[in-house]
Amino acid sequence: MALEKIRALDLVTDPAIAAADLARSLSAEFDGAAAEDVVAASLTRLFPGEVALVSSFGADSAVLLKLVADVDRSAPVVFLDTGKLFGETLRYRDRLIEHLGLTDVRTVRPSPVRLAEADPHGALWMHNTDACCAVRKVEPLAFAMEGFSAWFTGRKRFQAETRARLPLFEAEGARIKINPLAGWTSADVEAFRVRHAMPAHPLVADGFLSIGCMPCTDRVAPGEDPRAGRWRGQAKTECGIHLGLVGRQADGSGI
């Protein structure tokens, strides 16, 4: 299985190089495979007991959560509660947990000590969104991912130019990220949700197509990139957790 391969490679090369080689090999192996097959293989054969789903419980999250739950409802799901989320997102999380019967959803919050140091007044987002994302998302996730060899993400190529060449499997340091929905379109996502009678995030109908923290999320106008409402007016397009920063401390300066 995949873990045995990477550990064998670790004996002769750098773990990050071994993970990169493994990611390329798995992407080739599963090229054209259905998302259901990628999820099932990852949970049962490639990374059994060592893979988590990191979910924002956002606009498209129900799809990947269901794919994972259909294989193993006890699979770990990591949810980052930044302290700045919409109330609708928190209630949607609870609704999906009940709907899918998920039994191991781990709500991860920022360190109170780090918040006291970096954002004592809760207004860091107003003048340094990178640093705010670092202390509220990147650092907590780095701790939450300790002990996992791989994690699922719900990213898709259509969402933004920065994701247009997203592979099925990618390496982040010595850890593997799995993107089962990489090739899905927005129509695919919606068709799956409707076909399986999955509840929609309540903010989607109000024009929020990519949902993060409340202060930094805006509605998306017709024809705009689905993530155009994130950090509106800034060059920033990612919070940092998908920029190779998970697993090491970040201060926001390079996110």
Rank of each mutant, 00 (worst) to 15 (best):
L3Y: 12
L3I: 15
I6G: 01
A8G: 13
A8W: 09
L9R: 15
L11Q: 14
T13H: 05
D14N: 15
D14W: 02
P15R: 04
I17K: 14
A23F: 04
S25G: 07
S25L: 15
E29P: 00
A34W: 01
D37L: 02
L46W: 08
P48M: 01
P48W: 00
E50K: 13
E50S: 10
V51F: 06
V54E: 08
F57T: 02
G58R: 07
A59H: 08
A59Q: 13
S61V: 14
V63R: 07
L65W: 03
L65G: 03
S74L: 07
P76A: 11
V78T: 00
V78R: 01
T82D: 04
K84L: 09
T89R: 09
L90W: 01
R91Q: 08
D94R: 04
L96D: 01
I97N: 02
I97M: 03
L100W: 02
V105M: 00
T107M: 12
V113R: 14
V113D: 13
L115T: 01
A116P: 10
E117V: 15
A118R: 12
P120H: 04
G122T: 11
L124P: 06
N128D: 09
C133L: 03
C133A: 06
R136Y: 03
K137D: 12
A142E: 14
A144K: 13
M145C: 06
E146I: 07
S149E: 06
W151M: 05
T153K: 08
R155I: 09
Q159L: 10
A160P: 12
E161T: 12
L168F: 01
L168H: 04
A171L: 03
A171D: 03
A174W: 11
N179S: 03
L181Y: 06
G183D: 08
W184A: 04
A187L: 06
D188H: 14
R195P: 11
P199C: 04
P202I: 13
V204D: 01
A205E: 08
D206I: 13
G207Q: 03
I211E: 08
G212Y: 02
C213A: 14
M214F: 00
R219A: 12
G223I: 03
E224R: 15
P226V: 02
R227K: 02
R230A: 12
R232L: 05
Q234V: 08
K236L: 01
T237Y: 00
C239V: 06
G240A: 10
V246A: 05
A250F: 01
